[in-house]
Structure formats: structure tokens, C-alpha cells
Nucleic acid binder design. Structure first.
Lengths: 199, 199
DNA sequence: GGCTGTTGTTAGCGCTCATTAACCTGGTGG
DNA sequence: CCACCAGGTTAATGAGCGCTAACAACAGCC
């Protein structure tokens, strides 16, 4: 029996109420990213946080619910951050810069989540998938609007395609990462901006 | 019983010897792209080509073998095409243009294969994975060399990271495709070139 | 100090899946 | 014409999976 963290379960002294859930989701994200949703067993996830198998059902209704919560949470965070950055930016170009910086930071800090989001979206339960898709659509719209203001020459469909292309560029992070974080962020930022301007 | 093509099996009149294998691989690629390797059953693949379930074992040793052949084949085609284009290009800039065009065409013509390659590489049997990884490394080297000649200011590690980023940009095709093929190709080409130049 | 709710445990159920076995069929070459 | 074999069928097998059931331990509260 490998020792897990001393979890003082309740709202008492140490840990927040949902800390265990977060820990489980983080471990699951790592595993899903490496082997795919269907390639990871409930026992694998449990083992990764020091408990074994069915104990996870004390924290999540099902394996599908884990993926659902994981992906809706990402989508909400991404959209919220994007709206916030655009709101506080001064001018369209600054907004685009802020969006790129936000996506770059998120991708560099959460490579596993990025991988899972674009790999296992199709494995979501129907209602979760609808919700995630809706959030993603809104996120894309924020980008389309920002791009259209900086590069009005491109039509709206082109701006939409360009958004997806830039996501692909920035989200390539999990496949490379041979530079240190600072250099990587700067490189991706420059490339993304140049790509958008060429649209 | 839905009618499949009239297959004159042997090396006789109509079809080549391996036509059925190719047909199966194409169907499997489509399914793998949509649901992931572990999300597709042997019966699904069979049904997609009009035969049912275990008949596939007359053509492939195992389900893993299908994925293996699919991915090694892609990698070989990509590498071969890249070498050919670089060889016949006049000057470094022309070589880079040719590489970008090659990757763009391949991604637009084979979105399912692109998806499978970056999603299910981890589900390959060990020996197949080694082979595919080796081919991919060579492919990246071709790009690194081309980029380094056009943008010598970027170091080799940056050129490598830039390669992956450009792959991500171009391979974003399966997630968008709202423009027609010609416009999409041109847009991706422009964006990719601009991104590389900014590296 | 016993009660209770939270968070674990292990055993087992039912289902799906890849793979194999055993059998069928129709075109082709001798 | 007949034997063969490539290519197809359905049934069975064995492993692995998600999930539930039944039970244990331990914290905090009255």
C-alpha cells in the first residue's frame, strides 16, 4: 500500500473541499493525453493518485463524467481568459497580441489538456459534447472578431480558417518543446502573429 | 446484404492483388480518425467495406497490423515526396515553397490520415512505432535543413520547433475546411511561409 | 464513547472486444 | 470435371473493462 497524501477530507483544516477531485483530474488528463480515453483504465487513474480502482466513484459519477468535467472546465477557462484579455486590451492589435499570449501561455502550461481536448472530444457524452462545442464556438468567435479587425482584407470565413490554423500552430507545443519556456513562448508568439497578418 | 464491389479476387482481370487491403485501410483510417483506434471495433471496420467482422483476418494479421501498415505507409509517402520535391527544387527558397505545398496538398487530400497519425501514434506496436518515429525524424530533418537555409538567423533548435509549429498550422485542416480547396491551399501556404520567415 | 458520514478496500457481475475455430462457396488451373 | 484455395460466414473463447455491492476504518460531533 503506497502512501497517498494525508487527506483531511472535510472542509476542516488543510485541503479545500475539491482538492482530491482536482488531483484526480490532473492525473487523468496526463494519462488520457498519453494513451487516449479508451486506452486508459479506471484502475490506471486510481493508481496514479495512490488509490485503487473503484474508489474514484466516490468523487465522480463515471469515467465519462471525468472527461466531461475536464473538457468543459478547459473550455470555460479558455473562453473566460480570452474575454478578459480582449476587454482590458487597448485597441485591436493589442487585443490580438493578448489573445495570442493567452493561448500560448495556456498551451505551454497545460500540454496534456491541449492534447486531450483535440483528441478525445469525440468520446464525450452527447450533452457534454454539445456544451464544449458551444464554448469552443464562442472562443473561435472572439478570435475571428479580433483577426477581422486587424486584417480586414481577409473575409470572415478566411478569418475563421486562420483561427483554426493558428490554434494548430500554437497547440503544436506538446510535440516539440525543445526550447526553454521563454524562448518557446516568444517564438510561437512571433510565428502566430506573422501567420495571422498573412491571412 | 449490402453489395460491395464485385471483387475479382485474383491477379486476373480487374483489380490489383492488394486492392481490398487498400480499401480496408481507407475505411479504417476514416473510422480511426472519427472515433480513435480503441473506439473502433473490428466489426465496424468490416461493416464499412461490406464484409463482417473476422473476415478482415484474411487480409491483416491483427488490428494492430492495420494501424501499423497505415502509419508506416503515410510516413514513407510523406518522406519520399519531401525528398523528391527538395531534390528537384531550384534554390533554398523554392525548396521551402515546395515542402509547404507538398504538406498542404497532403493534408487537404488526406485529412483522416493526418488525424490518425497525430492521434494514435501511441497505440502502435513497439516495432512499428520505432519505424514510424524514425521516418518522422527524417522528415523533420528535411524541413529543419530547408528552414535553416532560408532563415539562418534562427538556430537549429528553433528551426526544429518552427517545423513542428508549421506542421500544426497546416494539419489544422481537419478542424476547419470552411473554404474551398483552392482558397484553403493558398491561405495555408501564405500563413505557413510567413510563420517560417518570422522564426 | 458510541453514531455517522466520508473515503477507502476487495470481490464479482455483465458486457464488449480481438482473435480463433470450423465450416461454406465459387472461380480457376490441370 | 474435379481438386484447390482465396475469401467469406457464424459460433465460441478468453481477457479486460466499467461499474456495483458489501464491508472496513477513521474523523468529528453530541
Amino acid at each position: 500500500m503506497p502512501f497517498a497524501e494525508p487527506n483531511t477530507t472535510r472542509s476542516a483544516s488543510g485541503g479545500q473541499p475539491g482538492s482530491r477531485r482536482a488531483q484526480i483530474l490532473a492525473a487523468a488528463a496526463e494519462l488520457f493525453a498519453r494513451h487516449g480515453f479508451h486506452g486508459v483504465g479506471i484502475n490506471d487513474i486510481g493508481a496514479a493518485v495512490g488509490i485503487s480502482g473503484p474508489a474514484l466513484y466516490r468523487h465522480f459519477r463515471s469515467k465519462d463524467a471525468m472527461l466531461g468535467e475536464m473538457l468543459t472546465s478547459i473550455s470555460e477557462v479558455l473562453l473566460g481568459g480570452a474575454l478578459e484579455r480582449v476587454r482590458t486590451a487597448e485597441g485591436p492589435l493589442a487585443a490580438l497580441h493578448a489573445l495570442i499570449g493567452w493561448q500560448v501561455d495556456f498551451a505551454l502550461d497545460n500540454p496534456a489538456l491541449i492534447t486531450v481536448q483535440e483528441r478525445d472530444l469525440g468520446n464525450l457524452a452527447d450533452s457534454d459534447r454539445q456544451q464544449v462545442r458551444a464554448l469552443q464556438r464562442q472562443y473561435v468567435e472572439v478570435w475571428v472578431s479580433a483577426i477581422s479587425q486587424v486584417v480586414p482584407a481577409a473575409g470572415e470565413p478566411a478569418a475563421r480558417a486562420a483561427s483554426h490554423a493558428v490554434f494548430g500552430l500554437i497547440n503544436s507545443t506538446p510535440h516539440s518543446a525543445h526550447l526553454d519556456r521563454g524562448q518557446m513562448a516568444e517564438l510561437l508568439h512571433r510565428m502566430a502573429l506573422a501567420a495571422v497578418r498573412a491571412a
